[in-house]
Design a protein around this nucleic acid. Structure first.
Lengths: 402, 402
DNA sequence: CTATTTCGTCATGGCCGTTTACAAATTAGT
DNA sequence: ACTAATTTGTAAACGGCCATGACGAAATAG
């Protein structure tokens, strides 16, 4: 008995559902889907050895998944090794699709992603939503969704669900926008305003951005902080491959972490919050630029041209971010920090001071900070993929044809 | 198909073990143990209805657990309702025991806790360990452990494992003390210095304190921050009933969250860390008190007597804690914050300014802050209970007689 | 004293992964 | 070209586990 007791967590005490044989099968179906999805075309035998079941068991699981249209048989593998070649299995490109949507301050966007992770249809509408009431915005979004769904259906896909990214706080019911300052929305039940025939997930844009980073980003860190600054500054906290949501769903409010406790007042009631130093408005003001249309691009342009005022503004924003992130890193010990959203665009001018500040305040090696390669697409892709993950996580819940 | 897709996570893709029938049985054994442990004496039928299995299935599970000595049949329940009375089941008071130990700066402590959660044996040795090398300390601890184990064995218990709380950072291997400033230990493999015949868990004192709060505290929040200040200031971050450890195991370093970015230098390399304002040394200095033996008691005494200097020192420490916790609360959105360890002793003088600071900087209702009722016992109890939870989480791994 | 309710158990059955065996398809060696 | 070895996928028998349904036991209600 010198077992690694500290790892002994095979049982999940919190699990609510009874552990029955059907549940076992559902979980094994999910494991087959995840394995095939993650590691490309694979034979039944390869799947079996990876998930630890026998070939026979995997065969029956695969049969069921092919019948429901979630897996496809691609035909015999190119040999190369001795023995009978396997029959390659791949996730279906004609089954369910995840519909992702984004309500931005300046645009609406919708896309459809198939189980393979490919974007199969998309639609965008530009134009500000600032101050518009939820109903017309949701109406327009619904139109875009229908358009994208129709397009996807022409390619043999059917919508498995809709996920909407919003620039604000979302309650844990994943329907209600509690506060979206830049839209001026409060306690808005998006569930009542969007198509009722699709399962709906609403979440913070930063959260979906973080999930996109988790699922599509470089490397495979499972513990990281994804910082996303559009107008407010939000963060997604990913712990062990799971999004940390908090009791009310408000986790990740990095923008209101105190940086200088006696600094300027903030709308939140506090003083010297990060947003007062690294928020878009603050940076534009410090850079001496008016609030323009494509604000971040303007910043990046001026910085690239060598405008010293702009560069200083960005440098100081980086310092403030570094201070706030020092606190976060001390608290969470993440593997890395990733900058996404608008921040990514001005990364080159932000990173040096940010990294310096973080390193200066850290005893050992500082937590690595990088820029997301997903750019501004993150939240939209994350939303669509959230639906896809839902299917992979419980393929048995999906009936052919929706 | 209007399923709550955002809740669809029945499959844990990260699960490493194949999902086989034996695993199912193991999990169900664990659920029976947890249910009986949490809800007192219960009949087989009551357990069945709670965990969603049939009475027949529960019967066989219970038989097995009684055979291995983890459950006991107490005899027929007092009736009161119609129908045949059930036979009360309880967690055994003579089976495995968790051995918890604490290496404090000024003492060593060991206790044995049975599956029922009761302390059945304990031993303490006072005297400072500051600056002593690990070997003699571990030797003394081993003696105490053997003493407590012997005592427990006389009561029909056998040790299922040993968990040791240390005042420092512990690597994720749960054996190595990476840094314990107040002991002056570095990269010490406690696994090599402690009894090898017992499964070992080593963890930070703050973490075990947080687990104690989770398992034994008032109410049942599953998302909270447990702040523990002995000499350094540590925190346990509990998310969904699980301890957040971080990539390297260093999560919860609240003491080095920047409070005033231009404040006094800290040993960590940073400036204005929380520890510079609310750490024991800083508070004693601000209070005009020399570093005495039972330092916190002295503080509390002076404060109770109305010493204004001491009170101001504590008030200011509370403010600094409030600032650091504002950041943490914004990031994590916990259900509550609990002060444990030495902090609990001076809570009355700390809390007002702490709460005020937190409320002032929070938009909505502020996160509630309370004082742990476990006092200084937290880490020791948490350690012992960690072993007990290990048994509850996988009863099948436990063989009678250890 | 009988009807009713609830508890624990037993026999049966169905679901599910394993084991074992085998045919099919390829490479390696002669 | 032919055989041996290897690997894949499937089929049948097996065993473990929970569900179902029936039954005796032990209490209450009338």
């Amino acid at each position: 008995m010198t077992a690694p007791l500290h790892e002994a967590r095979p049982a999940a005490p919190g699990r609510a559902l009874p552990d029955t044989q059907q549940g076992m099968r559902r979980r094994n179906l999910a494991r087959v889907m995840h394995t095939v999805s993650a590691e490309g075309p694979l034979s039944r035998a390869a799947v079996a050895s990876r998930i630890g079941l026998t070939r026979a068991a995997v065969s029956t699981l695969v049969d069921e998944l092919i019948r429901t249209g979630l897996l496809e048989e691609l035909g015999p593998e190119r040999p190369g090794r001795v023995g009978r070649p396997g029959s390659a299995l791949a996730v279906s490109g004609r089954g369910p699709a995840g519909i992702g949507a984004e309500i931005g301050v300046d645009h609406l966007a919708v896309c459809a992603v198939d189980l393979r992770g490919e974007v199969r249809a998309r639609a965008i509408r530009h134009g500000t939503n600032r101050g518009r009431s939820p109903e017309p915005v949701a109406g327009e979004l619904t139109d875009l969704v229908r358009q994208v769904v129709a397009e996807a259906e022409q390619e043999g896909l059917w919508p498995a669900g809709l996920a909407v990214a919003v620039p604000g706080l979302v309650a844990r019911d994943a329907r209600t926008v509690v506060r979206a300052p830049n839209l001026d929305w409060h306690d808005t039940d998006l569930g009542a305003l969007l198509p009722a025939d699709l399962p709906l997930i609403v979440d913070n844009e930063a959260n979906f951005g973080g999930l996109a980073e988790l699922w599509l980003g470089e490397g495979t860190p499972r513990d990281f902080l994804h910082v996303s600054a559009e107008i407010g500054i939000g963060a997604a906290v990913v712990v062990d491959g799971q999004l940390l949501r908090g009791t009310r769903g408000f986790a990740g409010e990095l923008g209101h972490v105190p940086v200088r406790p006696d600094g300027p007042e903030c709308a939140c009631g506090g003083r010297g919050c990060l947003e007062q130093y690294a928020g878009e408005e603050a940076v534009l003001r410090a850079a001496g630029l008016a609030s323009a249309e494509d604000r971040v691009a303007v910043l990046a342009d001026h910085a690239a041209e060598g405008d010293e005022t702009v560069r200083r503004a960005l440098r100081e924003a980086g310092e403030a971010l570094g201070i706030a992130l020092t606190g976060a890193v001390n608290l969470l010990d993440p593997e890395s920090v990733v900058l996404g959203g608008a921040l990514a665009g001005v990364g080159p001018w932000l990173l040096p001071s940010l990294r310096a500040e973080l390193a200066r305040r850290t005893a050992g090696p500082a937590c690595p900070v990088s820029v997301s390669r997903l750019g501004s697409e993150g939240p939209l892709l994350g939303a669509a993929h959230a639906v896809v993950r839902g299917v992979l996580d419980d393929p048995a819940a999906v009936a052919e044809g929706g």
